[in-house]
């Protein structure tokens, strides 16, 4: 799963609920003016062409690989033996 930034009109955004492979974080919604909005979400990179075909402008904020590397680093840092309490 990659972390995506999605810009689109309200009509296009409403239709994104049909994209089952996309997880939209609704509270991240921001107005860009002129009926354009920005929202964040998670999806595999393979979903991006579908989103773009619907009229979204998609920016990959973190790739699937980058998120996985980050998560492995966190797993190492939260080992129960960590003295950092």
């Amino acid at each position: 799963m990659a972390l995506l930034q999605i810009d689109a009109t309200s009509e296009v955004l409403t239709g994104l609920s049909e994209v089952e492979e996309l997880y939209v974080v609704k509270p991240s919604l921001e107005s860009l003016g002129a009926d354009r909005y920005r929202v964040g979400g998670y999806a595999a990179e393979s979903v991006i062409p579908d989103l773009e075909a619907r009229g979204c402008v998609v920016t990959v904020m973190m790739s699937t690989d980058a998120i996985e590397r980050f998560n492995r680093q966190v797993e190492d840092s939260i080992a129960p033996s960590s003295p950092d309490v």
Binding site: S10, L13, T14, L16, V24, K26, L29, E30, S31, V39
Partner: peptide, 15 residues
């Protein structure tokens, strides 16, 4: 940050 009434803050994404 944006302050707003909880019920309708996410309307354009079906919230």
């Amino acid at each position: 940050y944006v302050s707003g009434q909880s019920a309708f803050l996410y309307l354009p994404v079906g919230g």
